[in-house]
Write a protein that binds this DNA or RNA. Sequence first.
RNA 1: GGCCCCAUCGUCUAGGGGUUAGGACACAGGCUUUUCAAGCCUGCGACACGGGUUCGAUUCCCGUUGGGGCUACCA
Length: 487
Amino acid sequence: MSIRVRFAPSPTGQPHVGVIRTAIFDWLLARHFNGRFILRIEDTDRSRYVEGAVEEIIGALKWLGMDIDEGPEPIGGDHGPYFQSERLELYHRYADFLVESGKAYWCKCSAERLEELRAGQEAQKQDIKYDNYCREAHLKGAPGDGLHVLRFKIPEGGTTTFRDELRGDITVENSTLDDLVLIKRDGFPTYHFASCIDDHHMAISHVFRGEEWISSAPKHKLIYEAIGIEPPKFVHVPVILGTDKKKLSKRHGATNVLEYKNMGYLPEALFNFLALIGWNPGGDEEILPRERLIEAFSIERINTSAGVFDIEKLDWMNGAYIRALDIGELTDRLKPFMTEWRWIGVEWEPWGRDYVESVVALFQERLNRLTEMREKAFYFFEEIKGFEVSDVAKSFKGEDILVRLRAVRNALEDCDFSLDKLESAVRDTAETLGVGAGKLIHPLRLAASGTTGGPSLFELIKTLGKDRVLARIDFAIAWIEKNRLES
RNA sequence: GGCCCCAUCGUCUAGGGGUUAGGACACAGGCUUUUCAAGCCUGCGACACGGGUUCGAUUCCCGUUGGGGCUACCA
C-alpha cells in the first residue's frame, strides 16, 4: 500500500506550533516511506475564514523545508481540488446516498430549540446530546436549502470500536454518541463528514491529528461503515503544552511558527526540536538533521502523553545548529537581520562582506538565536555612546586608569595590528608599567567595545582596526575625565 | 455531570518483571581562560498513590488521585 498522508489545516488563523508539529509527523512519514505529503485546506466554515491564512500556512511549511507533493494550485495533483469548499458536489452525493439508505435524515430543529434542549439537559444533569427529535420525521430537505441540516443516524444500542495506531482499540457505547450534523444549513459539510469522504477519495493511508479528535473518532468509524468504505489508519498525536502544562497558547509566548523565524531561530533547529516533542528515535542523540529524522521516523515511537514546549531547550538546540554552520552560511542567515538593524545595506555596504564575515566568526559560538547578534556585536557597526556604571566599576577602576589607558594607546599606535603583535604590545606594556596584563586588557576591552564580555580581545581589536580602536580609547579617556570632574 | 485519553528527574525522554532506572535541557561546582561564551568533567534530580498477579513489580491488571480532551449547524 502506498503511503499518502495529508496535512489538513483550516484557514482560520496562523500556523500554530502544535498544528505544524502534526504536519512534521505527516511529512516525516511520507518521506520515510517515499510516500506523498498532501496539503488539503478544510475551509468548510465560511464564517471563520481568515484572509491570507492559506498563504501563511504554506509559507510556514516552506520555511521549515517541508515540500508538498499535492495541494492547492499551483502545486496541484490528481486528487484535487484541494479546497473542501470546491468539493461540495461530492459531499452532496454522499448525503443523498445516506438519506436514501436511511442512514441520515434531514432535521429542521432551530438553534433556539437546540439551545433550550441543552440548557434543560444541563439543569437536570443529563447527558448533553441531541434528542433525535427529527430522526423519524422523514423530512424532505436538500443541501443548502437554508432550512435543514442533515444528521447522521447513530445506531441504537451496541458499541463502536475503532483502532488508534498508538493506543490500540478503543470502544465506546453508541448511546454516548449523538446524531451529529453532516451537512450544515448553508450546505457546507461539517469536518466529520468532509474529512471522511476526502480521506477516502484522496486515498489517504494515515491520518495524524491531535488527540482531541479521539472522542469523535467512533463517529467517523460509523460514517465510514455507513458509506461502505475502508477508513485510513488513525494516529492521534499528543498535544503540546505550555510550561504551566496548559495547552500552548499565546500566554506562553509565540505560537505562530513564523514568529520563530523573526526571533532568530533556524528552521532546521525548530524542525528538529518539534519533531522530538512526542516522538523520539530511541537513541541518545538529539541533534538530528532532517535526513536522520526521516530515516529514523516511525509511528510506533510516537508517545501518547502530552509534552511541554521547553523554549530553553530550543535555545540550546538552536545554538548547536548555529555553531555547526560554516561562517559564510551563518553570515547569509544573519544578513536579513543586519540589514534590518541598518548595520549593512543589501550590498554589504559600507563594510563589505569580508568584514561582516570576520565579525560573524567572532560571535558564532556566542549565539543561541540570530537576533542576539544585535546586542552582542553592535560595536562593530555602531559607535559607542557611553559606558554602564557597573562596567566602569569593574574595568575602569583604579586611580591610574588614565595612565594605563594612555600607555596602551601609545603601544597600539605603533603596532601593526597583527594578532601576535597586538598581544605582545599589550603584555609588554603591562610589564613596563609593572602591572598584570589584566590591568590593561579589561580597560582596553571596555574602551574598545563598550562592554565587558565578548570575543577574544586581540581578535576583537584587530577586527575593529587601528583607527577605530585608537579613537575609542580617546573617547574613553575623555569620558572618564569628564565623569570624574562631575563626581 | 457523562464519555474518552494520559501518568519515569523541574522539562524533553530511554527503559522494561530482577538495572547502581540511562541520556539531553536547565541548575550547581570544577577545569580552561583576558572577559563572555563554547568545550570537557562532576554533582543535584524521577518511576503519583493503593490494592492485586508474581519468588520478584517502576514495568502486567484493577482502583484512587491528578492532568488533559470531547460533549457546536468550529475544526
